[in-house]
Each structure stands twice: as C-alpha cells, then as structure tokens.
Amino acid sequence: MDPLFEMQDVEKHFGTVIALGGVNFSVSEGECHCLLGDNGAGKSTLIKTMSGVHAPTSGRLLMRGQEVRFEDPRQAISQGIATVYQDLAMIPLMSVSRNFFMGNEPIKRRFGFNLFDHEQADKVTMDEMRKMGINLRGPHQAVGTLSGGERQTVAIARAVYFGAKVLILDEPTSALGVRQTANVLATVDRVRKNGIAVVFITHNVRHALAVGDRFTVLNRGKTLGTANKGEITPEELQDLMAGGQELVELESSLGGTV
C-alpha cells in the first residue's frame, strides 16, 4: 500500500545539536507504525517536524505523494495531521467540552454575533467520549479531574473527531498504569481500524508489540531500521533500542529482568 504520509531524509538541527540526521519514515492508512527509541533519540523532534511545530532543516515531507510544507501546526491540522503530545495539549482548569473544541469552537449565529455553541459542544463531547468507552460525569467536568488514561482518550477522541487522517501519539502510555494502558491501547486499535494512520511513540517494547504493524527504531537522530510485525522478536527490538551491545551486558548482570 502507498504510504499516506512520508518523510524523506529529514534533518533537524537546533543550533549545534543535530536532533535528526537524515530520517526516513512513512505511515499508511489503517496502519499503526511504532516509533521506538531511548530518551533524547529524537522521537519528539521527529513528530514535531511532522506536525508543523518545527520546520525541517532539510528533507521532504510528502502527503499522498505530494510534497507539503507546514508553516505552523494549523496547516498540518488542516491537512489531517493531528498530534497528541506527551503533555497532551489539554488545559486542566478548563472543562472537557471547552478543551475538546479548543481552537475549533462550534459557532452559532445569534443577533448578528458568532457565539460559541455550548449545547452542540457539550453534546458532541459526551457522544464522542461514550464512543471511546468513557462515561463522563458531565461535559463541564474539568480535565484536571480526569485520570491520565481518560485524558489521553479525550485528546485522541478530539483528534479523530476533527478529521485526523494521520494521528500521532507521543508516549501516550508512559505515565499510565496497567489498566489505563490497556484502555489506551484499545483506543489506538479502534482508531486504526477506522482507517486512520497511527504513529505511536513509546519506549516500551511490549506496548509497541501489542498494537504495532511496523516498528522503527530511532537512535541519536538516525533510524536504525524498520521491521514488520512478526519479523522481529521483543528481545531484538529491545536490543536495537539500547544500541545493541550495552543492553546485552546489562541484561546478564540484571538476570534478564529488563
């Protein structure tokens, strides 16, 4: 299948720091492509380049084979590239429904004014959250009172509702417990089955293997390789992530618990 979104030889420098040094990456409809890598490998930088936060220093971005350039996140969003950041881009003090529609508020016209259509926003929020398997106490519940997994789900539901074709998730499970992780992975699976291309970033090999169709490992700003589901064992993936050698030694000294 042709990739929906593709990055070719993308480099990103921050002053003298080379955060990305020539990365190739692609994702197709209905596919979950996992991006793995250790801390500081450049995963967040890669997806910020995909989503228009950073302009690449060099290299090309292609959407359905056409080269695209994003000046800001808004342009990426309008092309259907939605990102759920590590820090979620949600505002704890605001209600779920205000967060859900932040930047995309529904409008109704009254007395010649464009008003925020709160009824519509509340209704859609409750419906979409129910579809994702979360029963809110009400649309006015502040996001700050939701659990980590619920917040992730709100953020994912929001991206999907606003027409995401490529959904980028930056470590959605890193701060979650077992049950909440399972919920989020189930959500990812549900989203992928609807034909959305998912880019899933994690350092956790087991989480990646649970939902991923393809796996790419990033190390010090370079891709170490890409493997399809079933072509790679958890151990091999783990080794790649840690840059091979060291972990093997580490593993033996820890008695195989890593």
Binding site: V53, P73, R74, I77, T83, Y85, D87, L88, A89, M90, I91, P92, L93, M94, M102, G103, N104
Partner: peptide, 12 residues
C-alpha cells in the same frame, strides 16, 4: 492563560 503552549498546539 491556562496553558499557552497547549493552546498553540491546538491552533489558538
């Protein structure tokens, strides 16, 4: 005011 960075990411 709630979180300028988050708001920017959402296109505000």
């Amino acid at each position: 005011g709630g979180d300028a960075q988050a708001a920017r990411y959402a296109g505000v």
